[in-house]
Each structure stands twice: as structure tokens, then as C-alpha cells.
Design a binder for these strands. Sequence first.
DNA 1: TCTGGGGTCCTAGGACCC
DNA 2: TCTGGGGTCCTAGGACCC
Length: 413
Amino acid sequence: MLGLVDGNNFYASCERVFDASLRGQPVVVLSNNDGCAIARSSECKALGVKMGQPIHEVPTHIRRQLKVRSANFALYGDLSGRVVSVLRDLFPAVEVYSIDESFVSFDGIPADQRERVAGQARERIMKWTGIPCCVGIGSTKTLAKLGNKRAKTTDSGVEEITGDHQLQDFAVGDVWGVGRKWAAKLGAEGILTALDLANTSPDALRARYGVVLARTQLELQGVACGQLEESEPDRKQIVVSRSFGREVVELDDVAQAVATFAIRASEKLRARSLSAGGVWVWLDTNPFKSGAKQYHPSRAMQLITPSADTREVLAMAQALVRSMYRKGYAYKKAGVGLLDLSPCGTQQSDLFASVDPRSTKLMAVLDQTNRRFGRGSMGFASAHRPKPGQWAMRQEHLSPSYTTKWDQLLKVR
DNA sequence: TCTGGGGTCCTAGGACCC
DNA sequence: TCTGGGGTCCTAGGACCC
């Protein structure tokens, strides 16, 4: 049996841990650039703010009642790790599925003890981290996810899916793996509930929707298609992209943003002990601005040998942005991707390319320095920090990084 | 004024090979 | 009139997830 433990309104709950004035209040956390609602407290949902809704579309009289926060991923990531460490103490195996969700194994826990252990996990997480969460239990991941959905509406915060009779209570769109498009298409064919989906003809489903939904159907029937994965599989690509706080016109500014993203992507690469075989850069004008000239160039290049050296990634990213940049457009977003990732030290080297043996050491010093003194303490001239009002993203409602920055610790008078 | 970011997998179609 | 069969690789697009 599997459980899914999911932090309720996770980012909003994180903001409340250290700021008691937010408790009981309608809290909304905004995406980067303070654009869209990406987490809402229950009070905020009750006011009608939708997931993903651009905050400027929320009527002013509602917006005035909201406690608004800019996304603070340093804080959320740290609290997420603390939740996971509680789970690792209580369960024989844990798969960290996302920043706010983990699958856990109930192996070795008697059936009549599951709800008690799940309840204990909830209590301990609440007590030790301040994050409220719910637990869904089922024989497959898909059923555990469904149970979690129901658990959110119960007092106990724990729900086990034990049989088909429960499936009819869920709309087909509630099922993990059934998104908006497929829910509409299935609905048009009369498949309206999770039970309908479980009972429909497998061959027709496979033909019309492909193997992904066919697997989901099996999981609803209790046939596990995905196991608990305790170790994270290696990444296939690493992407860093941001919208700009304002439109950017000049090549130097666009190039500076791309340099910043390339440096960050290289850091993420080394943190996972990977090397990149290629670099990919793209630029975007503002698609929401009707009448503005649009331009969405995208270009990739292979490195001669896979590398984790920021200098090589940076040089290639700069060459790419310069080759794509066109004067006369207002750029709103850019991104850098690292492709063809492979574990460090396993690559085939080029017979004629010499690898700089000092590279690994230099990058290690760079990373250590930035870990110790803060990101960007040691860097590259091509990515010097943007002046306020330049391309830097807007974060007007950012809370302190209470748990990850010494100078931002909570002060208790 | 204002519209996120980071991933995965599958499928179809074209180019190319023998 | 008639025009094979089987395979790989790559890319673009679409679906999904958080």
C-alpha cells in the first residue's frame, strides 16, 4: 500500500509558519515577477481567486483584502526538506514527488494501523514544521492521489481508497493524469467519473488516448504501473528562464540576462554532478501585447565535448544570443537550456580537444565560495547584477528567507 | 502598468538507411 | 495498369504534472 502526503496550499502555508499575522487571512502567493496566483489559502480560494489567475485580473475590491506574497522558493524548498525528513523517520520508503508531495510506503504496517500512522505523520509534521498536510492511501499511486483529494475535505485529513464504490464520487478530471483537454474529451463520450474511466473498454481507450491514459485506467483498477522510486532519476535537461520585470530592447541587456541564466544553469548542472552536451537559448517578445511585433527565436548548439564549466556554457550562450538578437523588438523573456546531460566523468573525450584540467578545481572553488558567501559573491563580469528597473524580476512582496540566510533570521524580541 | 517556471512522456511525420 | 518492407533517428507538437 502507498500513501500520498501533500502539504495543504503549500506555499501559502510556508508563508504562515513565520508570519503569524497571515493565519486566518486570505493569503495569495504570486509567481515570479508577481504575475499569477500560484498558491492560495482556503480564505483566498473562498474569495474566488483562481489558480494561475493573473493577479491584475482580480477585482480591486477583492485584491485589497488579500495578503500578497512574492514567491520565496528558498523558504519553500527548505521547509519541504524538513517535511521529508519527518516522513523518512516514520515510513520504510519515501519518494519525493514534488516540492509539496511525497509518496510513502506502508510496507510492514498492518492494515488496521495505516490510518493511525498516517495521522501520526500529519501531527508530527504540523508540530515540527508548522505545515498542515493530508494523506491519501491506496494500492496504487493513482488511487493514493485520489484518496488525498478526498482527505482534503475530511476532518481526519486521512482517506483510504478501498474499493470501486468510492470511485464514482470523483469527476474524471480529478484523476491524476487526466488534464483539462482529456477531461472534456472523455466527458463528451459519456465518461464522467473515475469509475466510468475504470470501467471503459481498454482497447478503445488505448486507441483514442494512447498508452498514458491506458496505464492510468489500470492504476484505477488497482494494477500498479508505477512503483515507488526512492532515488531521483538523472535529469535530461536543465532549464533556467525568466520573464523580465520590464521590456528590454538593447542587446547588452538581453545578453546580460542570458549570461545570468547560463551561470545559474551551470550551477544546477554541477550540483547534480552532470555535464551538458549542448546549450540552447531562446528569446521571447511579449505575446500578450497585441499590436507589438513578435519574435521568438530559439537556437541550440552542441559542445565539442560535454562540459560543466560555466565559462564554456557562457561563451556558447553569448554567441547564440548575439546570433539571434534583432534590433527593434521589445524582449520580455529569455531562457537558457542545457541539453544531452550525462553524469560527469563518463563522457567520451574528443581526440583533438584538450580538456583544461584546472576547470574542475576552478568550478569547485566558485561553487564553494558562492555557497558560503551567497549566490553571486564570486561571478562573471558579463552577468553583473541588473540595475533596479532593468530586466530584474519584480518581487515587491517578498518575505525574508527565514531559514536559509543568516541576516534574515526571525527576530524574537 | 500588470499575464510563471521547470519538467516528463508520447505520437506523428519526415528523412534516411538497407 | 503496375510502385516493398522494415528499421532508426530527429523534430515538432501536444498532452500531462507540480
